[in-house]
């Protein structure tokens, strides 16, 4: 068995001054190189889970924390956040809140500079991160003059320059238009496929992302209520009752299953269309 890159055991967490726990009995493990989609209704614990993975909880937030979280071999509760930041990068909803440098290049260099790396190493990492994300042409620009999608890519490049093994993204496309959103999500897919980065992605746009991921976990009221391949999870009764916005293609496939006498499990219009064309020929 591969050594897990993330291992969460018996986690219960309650924010300071809150009476109800935000996470209850969470057991979760991810293998290196997995691409995991996290979804569930607002307030279900998704964001809290992200903060747990990079150690902001409990290190910065405090609160009542039970259980263990190990990321890349480190116990988060006893590892400083700056140390964890070299292993786990966290991308937030609103890139405006994260960017503060005058140029894209400086923004991306900021993390590695703080690691006290050599100048050559920093420049190499910056170049590489900008190229991977596809924004080398923007390096002289100020993050302020970029579109939301471009800003989000700068935030991702800034994390990649730290060479993290895990990227955690908390609704990175929430404020983006569909075309930019698609491009950010496809970038995550490439980073995962080509660079082997483990990706934990919180996302509501299931129709855009479900065919890109290996695995889908669903939170409800602080608990993980479903965990499996997206073709299993999105087709399960429990999840469709939760009202998480099951993609139209899934709905149509479910309706057709009975008619064609087999269980259809399609996630994209391409898949369903080629099946239908195949049946007609």
């Amino acid at each position: 068995m591969v050594l897990a890159i993330i291992e969460v055991k018996g986690l219960c967490y309650t924010y300071p001054e809150s009476e109800t726990p935000s996470l209850i009995d969470i057991d979760f493990r991810a293998d290196p190189g997995e691409f995991v989609l996290v979804t569930g209704p607002s307030g279900c614990g998704k964001t809290t889970f992200c903060r747990v993975l990079n150690g902001l909880i409990p290190n910065s937030y405090g609160g009542d924390f039970k259980g263990t979280v190990v990321v890349d071999g480190m116990l988060t509760a006893t590892t400083p956040v700056y140390e964890l930041a070299q292993h786990v990068g966290l991308v937030f909803q609103n890139p405006e809140n994260e960017l503060f440098c005058t140029t894209v290049e400086r923004e991306v260099a900021f993390g590695p500079e703080n690691l006290a790396l050599s100048r050559e190493e920093i420049m190499m990492r910056v170049e590489e991160a900008l190229e991977t994300v596809g924004i080398s042409h923007l390096k002289e620009k100020s993050p302020e003059e970029l579109s939301g999608g471009e800003q989000q890519k700068v935030a991702i490049a800034a994390l990649l320059a730290m060479k993290p093994k895990v990227l955690v993204l908390d609704e990175p496309t929430a404020n983006l238009d569909p075309v930019s959103a698609k491009s950010v999500l496809e970038l995550m897919y490439r980073l995962n496929e080509k660079n082997g980065v483990t990706v934990i992605l919180v996302e509501h746009r299931l129709e855009m992302v479900s065919n890109l991921v290996d695995r889908c976990i669903v939170f409800d009221a602080g608990r993980i209520i479903a965990d499996g391949a997206p073709r299993e999870v999105l087709y399960s009764e429990k999840v469709s009752e939760l009202g998480v916005g099951i993609p139209k293609i899934v709905q149509v496939s479910k309706h057709l299953s009975e008619f064609v006498g087999e269980q259809l499990r399609f996630l994209s219009s391409d898949e369903l269309a080629s099946y239908i064309r195949g049946r007609r020929n």
Partner: peptide
């Protein structure tokens, strides 16, 4: 208009 079309419109065109 470079809008991403609804999933079902895409499916309609593809088949």
């Amino acid at each position: 208009s470079s809008i991403l079309p609804p999933q079902l419109a895409e499916l309609s065109w593809e088949i």
